[in-house]
Amino acid sequence: MSLKNLFTDWSRYRKGIEEGGFHDYEHMWGMAVDLNKCIGCNACAVACYAENNLAVVGEQKFYDGQAMHWMRIERYWDEPDLGEDRVQEFNHHGASFIPFMCQNCNAATCEPVCPVAATYHTPDGLNAQVYNRCIGSRYCSNNCPYRLRFFNFFSYYESSWPEPLHMQLNPDLTVRDKGVMEKCTFCVQRIRAAKDKARRENRKVRDGEFLPACAQTCPTGAIVFGDLLTLHTPGGGVGETEVANLWRAHQVELGKTKQTKQNPELRGYRVFEKLNTEPCVMYLERVREV
């Protein structure tokens, strides 16, 4: 069975541009992040730390690039070689920032390089990481264009939650040990709970029934999470979700390496979509005063 799983089932749910980037199963979880609404407060990152048992690595290891922030606010400062006037202008505007989490690509570049198939695509459109199977080769991290995979170089859990802080650990997740790669899961434990509940009540998962920790915490509601599967139906599917509405409104389409929209008012884009990774996260560009 395991060989069958490896060779056939494993790549069953990878959908790149050649297949329209679409997924033909129950769900396709995706996000829309409005950078106009994002105030860069880092609440999402903190919520992620609390929800997903993320290890706190300490200052030095943070500088060494070992921080375990599945969700992070990336900052970009102006280029120093812009010339005097432009630097002024950029300083005036401040840093530009973007909340960045695993893009859960439909044709993820991390998946095919794993030597032990520890990372694979689930029927839910998620890019999964199976910690027990991971041997820590770090190929996936090297192959991720977004740098959103985090490796446990040490047994961080030993010092991360001194008593009584270990009581805050989320029992729905494991605490990862040394030598294991980890990444954002779109809070799969919440997805799982919501699906269990829906099944119990004999219905489908409703839009907005649950949110990942980051979206739940965002004070400005910049992160919208939901099922993208209705994008499949041209002209709007039945029971279209909020996130699918946003994608449609900004004419961001799956299965494309470059969006063809003409209207400059539409702000939607996906990060590095030219790489044909088919990310499931859409960002809405920040509007700035010129």
């Binding site: 069975m1 799983n5 089932d9 694979y120 689930t122 029927p123 839910d124 998620l126 999964a128 199976v130 910690y131 027990n132 199977r133 729905d172 997740l173 494991t174 799969v188 434990q189 799982r192």
Partner: peptide, 14 residues
């Protein structure tokens, strides 16, 4: 396998 349960790793692993 015998009872046609789910195959997906993430159904059981967390």
């Amino acid at each position: 396998e015998a009872n046609e349960g789910p195959f997906d790793c993430w159904k059981c692993h967390k």
